[in-house]
Simulated scan of single mutants.
Amino acid sequence: MNTAPRTYAIRVDGHLDDHWSAWLGELDLARDDDGTTVTVSVADQAQLHGVLAGLRDIGAVITELRTTGTPAPICPSVLERPLQTERLTLRPATADDADPTWAFRQLKSVNEWLTGCPADLEGYRELFSKPARLATTVILTLGHDPEAPTIGDFMLRREDAWAQLDVADQARDTQAELGWVLDPAFTGHGYATEAGRELLRYCFEDLGVRRVTANCFLGNDASWRLMERVGMRREVHAVRESLHRSGRWLDTVGYAILEQEWSPA
């Protein structure tokens, strides 16, 4: 008996340009507002493996692979358990965290440096609650009480390092990327630095990665100064590399720290 071919949805981090469609076998590319791209592969396992290999060849980070028409899989959080510092708790995000994080993310002074933020709370809830987004979001609360206020959120994403194909297996899950947003009402107390140092500890001691990266607009000096306070070094200064919503092409900077460069505070 003949059966219909399976259809696979593949989500990758970042927006892929249309010119990669031919590289991937003339597949349609759909770019989502959350900064990811979805492509659909209709074929047998051999073609699916070819598409996956093509994505790896161009350095794309695959965040989801599923058969269409079935529920999206549950994505486990990169943060496997809550962490506590002297003054803070860092825990995996849930859909219920959309409202408290919206309260500061929609502020003009905060959104100035973000990739984007939906114009209304309902749109933000939908974006925030996507499994891939929840899996990489860490909620920062003040104190250790379960009812403690949310004062920020971090992005923690584990990823493959770039590698040549014959050694790609050795590069899987060997690095992580950090990002952060802090409620302006709680800046100036060292909370972001305290949380950042704890997440670096978690990356190196618990996840066992070899390298952690972070990046931002050069104009976001509060962010890159934080990178330096937690021990990261500037590796990249790209001149007028990114288009800001103001219409200006702005410089960006990239920071990193290796496991052997890190030391507990």
Rank of each mutant, 00 (worst) to 15 (best):
P5A: 14
R6G: 09
W20M: 08
W23N: 10
W23L: 13
L24V: 04
G25K: 07
G25I: 08
L27G: 05
A30D: 09
D32K: 07
G35P: 03
T37F: 11
V38I: 12
V40T: 15
S41H: 14
V42Y: 02
Q47C: 08
L48M: 14
L48F: 07
G50D: 11
L52K: 10
L55N: 02
R56S: 07
R56P: 01
I58P: 04
A60R: 11
I62G: 01
E64F: 13
T68F: 10
G69A: 11
V78H: 04
V78D: 02
L79G: 00
E80I: 04
L88R: 01
R91V: 00
R91F: 02
D99E: 13
P100D: 07
T101P: 04
R105C: 13
L107C: 03
L107N: 09
G116S: 10
A119E: 08
D120Q: 13
E122D: 07
G123S: 08
F128W: 09
K130Y: 10
V138Q: 00
L140M: 14
G143F: 13
E147I: 01
P149L: 06
T150W: 05
T150Q: 12
G152T: 04
M155S: 06
L156D: 01
L156R: 04
R157S: 09
R158Y: 05
D160Q: 04
L165F: 01
D169V: 03
Q170D: 09
A171Y: 03
D173N: 12
W180L: 11
V181A: 14
D183W: 05
F186V: 04
G188S: 13
G188E: 10
G190A: 03
T193D: 03
E194S: 09
G196R: 10
Y202Q: 08
F204I: 08
E205G: 01
V209P: 00
R210G: 11
V212Q: 02
C216M: 14
N220D: 04
S223Q: 06
V236D: 04
A238K: 13
A238M: 12
R240K: 14
H244L: 11
R245S: 07
R248G: 01
W249F: 15
L250D: 12
T252L: 06
V253Q: 00
V253R: 13
Y255P: 00
Y255M: 14
L258C: 05
